[in-house]
Write a protein that binds this DNA or RNA. Structure first.
Lengths: 257, 257
DNA sequence: CCGACAGGATCATTATTTGAACCGATAGTT
DNA sequence: AACTATCGGTTCAAATAATGATCCTGTCGG
């Protein structure tokens, strides 16, 4: 881990739930030396990525992030474009809808619109979704370049529930079905009692850059709702791609077999 | 400059106007060695702060920034709170309104609402405002801890126009007037032909954390508009503080003399 | 008054970063 | 077809920056 990566890894300890850290606390949590942690924080503070409260001496994320995030969004307005669409879908289905993007850390949840029902599926922003165990992941893989899929399949997949697909043959089957149909279905692969449908969000090159999914408790599933969700998730994904690029990218399914 | 600071400084080359960079270009611009630049970019990419386009090999800001910016905003929603207020002020005055926050780099412009008039003042987000030469800066200094003000006054101030206040005595006078009145007025101190009024945005500790300003071309100034702008900027600043903290912080003027 | 823990500073040791040179690929130019 | 100029990316000895045990100081609660 390079020094830079260490410094940035500190940023990831700041969350909605714990937006402020004291030096010693953070050092313990990150398992860095206190002096090291402090030097990294000072560097981050000099760059405006964190700020230190003058009185409490605690650290929090800095204003510099706002500018950077804004630049990113103005160049590639995924959130701006997708969030309203997610809202629509959430309103229409009243189930939890989430958007994820594939990046260095994996398939990361970027935004969640939760159902208003008491019995609902909760997903945390920032959470990394295992590709083989979630509908989002399968939808993503189904429209990814073959090398990426193959290299992912080489690693032994983690088991989360009794339903997690772990045999490569079954996984490949799921990916191919999703590639044919343009959407995927999750069957309690990540969490017991949760089912979901997902569609890829395609980039201009025709490969998936992320996915959108609707998740619901198994207890509420019926043929009718599933069908509606499939419709909703597919048209939402199309809408997002179209609004991002001004045109509909032509899909490039991965042929794994 | 630490390695971490170098890496983060690379991020600042990505702007609305130049959101993508090739390796060699960026290395030249940042005056780092190509190998160094690449290692830093790889570290940033591993952390999700930049992304590399698989085909063009060019780099752009990454999705990780969105999550971090969101955490920051949910903890301290300055933009969420202030932008609507700025919009109101801009609509009411039809002049350029801008918000700045004090951080490591200085007083940084966070958001701008521009006037709809053809002849208007333009301010760039991300721009650092010299404290002694702008209304925003004076308003900020007038409500800053005395040590900060004193250490700033020690440095010889830069001259931007014939009107820039550079004599310490005059500067102190301006700061004290602003502290008394609760707002400051800029008289072409930074740019010829531009006048502005600004008010501090107070933190819970009573010290300024930034400021809000209305800027207009000198040619449009009248006693009446100035008075309206002063009213507007003061009530906007109060509103922002109140919405941020749920109460009105009691101001702490700096006593410099 | 004391102990515990906080944030911060120091500096010899150590490990990471650095950059000139190099590679292979691509795109004009002659 | 050969030449040239770039590009992104890699290598490795030399140089520099990061590290962490230790110390300092202030604050809090008992």
């Amino acid at each position: 881990m390079s020094t830079v990566e260490k410094a940035i890894s500190l940023l990831n300890f700041f969350t909605e739930d714990e937006p402020e850290w004291g030096l010693s606390d953070l050092a313990r949590q990150a398992r860095f030396d206190k002096a090291t942690t402090r030097r990294l924080l000072v560097a981050l503070a000099n760059s405006g990525l964190v700020e230190q409260h003058a009185v409490t001496r605690r650290y929090q994320l800095g204003a510099g992030l706002l500018r950077l995030a804004r630049v990113r969004e103005s160049h590639f307005p995924l959130l701006q474009v997708a969030v309203p669409v997610l809202r629509e879908v959430a309103a229409a289905t009243d189930e939890t809808v989430h958007l994820s993007e594939f990046g260095a850390r994996g398939l990361v949840t970027l935004h969640v619109e939760e159902s208003s029902k008491a019995n609902r599926v909760s997903v945390a922003t920032g959470q990394v979704l295992p590709l083989h165990a979630t509908a989002s992941g399968i939808a993503f893989l189904a429209f990814s370049p073959a090398p990426l899929v193959k290299s992912y399949l080489r690693k032994p997949p983690a088991t989360f529930t009794r339903h997690t697909l772990v045999q490569p043959a079954r996984l490949i089957e799921a990916i191919e079905t999703a590639a044919e149909r343009g959407y995927s279905q999750g069957e309690q692969g990540f969490e017991d009692g949760v089912v979901s449908v997902a569609a890829p969000i395609l980039g201009l090159d025709g490969y998936a850059l992320g996915s959108i999914a609707i998740a619901m408790p198994l207890s509420r599933r019926t043929k009718a709702t599933t069908d509606r969700h499939i419709q909703a998730v597919r048209s939402a994904s199309d809408k997002i791609s179209a609004r991002l690029f001004g045109e509909q990218p032509s899909p490039r399914q991965s042929r794994v077999a």
